[in-house]
């Protein structure tokens, strides 16, 4: 009896060939993107999306063409933060036209497909029972469509805002073999860094791309009246973590309530408040990303 290896094909479905086509199409689409950067944390609630939105805008303000993908399929927030929520997206000549932020950043997010605020991401299925068997695959297919089917055009930077958790990193390796690097966001608390360290380990082990550096968000509070800076959390842990993993500390973004207000309004903080401690840090972060890819660091 012939064995699996003796049979030349799978009866005509050519599943491997179809997957290869998916990969080819993805690579073809991303060939015009110079640098792909994943923004990750591992820990939820540290402000990845707000850092992503502001970093993308800061890069845009510095004259770059920038795109952002909200890879948080189930909890999309980038569209709101970048002021594109409710924008109609439509077909172009070779895919779907992304939403466009007021600063010209191209955005693709599941949020643009959902009916309203209350609608969760629910896939049509005969039964939602035991959805764990296929839901993750469905989400990665959606992410692959965002990457492949969006008319990104020529971009200097494509930022990917990853959801919390480390489980998506191995999938990202398959989707993006040409990932340029990762930026890891944390807050100063020990609990946050306990989780973020796991992401750093996984990123260094799995990804064929360097960790560009760590960003400490909500680093301190700057008094709006007197300008005095006070720590929100015990400080020093992030420096220690960066040393431990031999990665750069790219910046410490002070807490500023206007970041949250801007996110809620869909008006980008870094554009409106460039000359504030947080605004300057975000602009400096963009400069460091540029320098990294220009091999200046």
């Amino acid at each position: 009896m012939k064995t699996y290896k003796d049979l030349p094909a799978d009866g005509g479905s050519n599943i491997i060939g179809q997957v290869t086509q998916q990969v080819n199409r993805l690579q073809q689409r991303l060939a015009s993107v110079r640098h792909i950067v994943a923004i990750m944390s591992g820990k939820g609630g540290v402000g990845k999306s707000s850092v992503t939105a502001n970093l993308a805008s800061a890069l845009g303000l510095r004259g770059h063409s920038v795109g952002v993908i909200d890879a948080d399929i189930n909890g999309p927030s980038i569209a709101k933060m970048m002021g594109v929520r409710g924008q109609r997206i439509d077909y172009g000549d070779d895919g779907v036209k992304p939403a466009l932020s007021p600063l010209g950043v191209k955005v693709m997010s599941m949020d643009l497909f959902l009916k309203d605020d209350e609608t969760p991401v629910l896939w049509e299925a005969q039964t939602q029972k035991d959805a764990f068997t296929w839901r993750g695959t469905m989400e990665m297919s959606a992410l692959r469509e965002f990457l492949s089917d969006t008319e990104w055009g020529s971009l200097d930077y494509l930022l990917i805002d990853l959801p919390p958790g480390t489980d998506r990193l191995p999938n990202l390796v398959d989707l993006l073999p040409n990932l340029g690097g990762t930026v890891v966001v944390t807050i100063p608390s020990g609990v946050s860094q306990l989780v973020v360290k796991k992401s750093l380990t996984m990123a260094k082990k799995l990804l064929n791309a360097p960790v560009i550096g760590v960003v400490e968000n909500m680093a301190a509070y700057v008094c709006a009246d007197c300008g005095k800076t006070e720590d929100l959390f015990p400080s020093g842990h992030t420096e220690e973590m960066a040393r431990q993993f031999d990665v750069s500390l790219l910046g410490k973004i002070p807490f500023d309530p206007r970041i949250s207000i801007a996110s809620d309004e869909g008006s980008v903080f870094v554009d409106q408040h460039r000359d504030t401690p947080a605004g300057r840090t975000l602009i400096a972060l963009a400069e460091k990303i540029e320098a990294f890819f220009n091999h200046e660091v």
């Binding site: 997957v19 290869t20 109609r88 439509d90 077909y91 000549d93 643009l112 959902l114 609608t119």
Partner: peptide, 27 residues
């Protein structure tokens, strides 16, 4: 397969995506 969608988006007839270099689109 998305259960409830924004009715305003992507309602028109979609153009064929180029297959050059990548074969037929998997989607």
């Amino acid at each position: 397969f998305l259960n409830q969608q924004n009715p305003d988006n992507l309602t028109a007839e979609a153009p064929t995506v180029s297959t050059e270099g990548g074969g037929k689109c998997p989607f």
